[in-house]
Amino acid sequence: MKAWFRKYILLLPLVIWLLVFLVLPYGYILVQSFFSTDSFGKPVPGFTFDSYKQVFSNSLYIATVFRTLGYAVIVASICVLLSLPLAYFIAFKVRRNKTLLYSLIALPFWVSYIVRAYAWKIILGKEGLLNGFLQWAHITDKPVDYFLYSTFSTLVCLVYILTPFVAIPVYAAFEQIPRSLMEASKDLGAGSFTTFRRIIFPLALPGIISGATFALVLAMGDFLAPLLLGGPKTLFISNVIQNLFGTSNDRPLGSAVGIIILILITGILQLTSRYEKKFSSLKADN
């Protein structure tokens, strides 16, 4: 008993933390999703599936969930495409100041999310930097509306915010690849691209998947970018949830949507972690 206690006491603070700030709130959300409300949203305790029925009978909710998932997949894919060359460059092409370059990736985090989202308004607006440049260079003759207050601007902002979440694990994965394997590949006559395709990429795949998962899940849960930069058609599921909690004041319905997303995200995480394991082919790790 004593030994057991000593062993696990280190975990106690975290367990308490998770219990109070994760398990209990989620439990409450689950319970609340079965409540009903009056017209102004005062929750009425009870046990009803009405909220779930509403989620599945009104296309607003499910369609928005899957549209958001689609946006998240796009964002995660672009983040990966941008991160691969960047991480490759820092991991294999740079000799000096590696740590400096690596920490530059994290530099944007020094500025708050909202400020960075606002910065995109200045860049993408009708009188913004990008439109100003395009007109100055005579590429366009009038401002392009679509740059700002559109799904485009929302996705641009999310890619910008989330790329470091992908670049850092991808870089870490590249760094872990034994240089001997790459040298062997080159000795056997493979060019850089073949080495990347057949050695580096497969070995880094777990890192790529875990980075992409982070971007996917964070994009899926974002509501600020669509709120600040989105147009009349941009609606993420988190905006709907935010509205259900903060405006419509239908907390049971908001909870039901939340539970469904929770299940969806858990499913995605299971799937990606299975693939991560599947591709962890470098068994002789250290």
Binding site: F109, Y113, F165, A172, P206, G207, S210
Partner: peptide
């Protein structure tokens, strides 16, 4: 290797 990746991402999250 994976643990390093996880740790780096988690520390990043806190940072963010």
């Amino acid at each position: 290797r994976k643990r390093i990746i996880r740790l780096s991402v988690i520390s990043l999250l806190f940072f963010a």
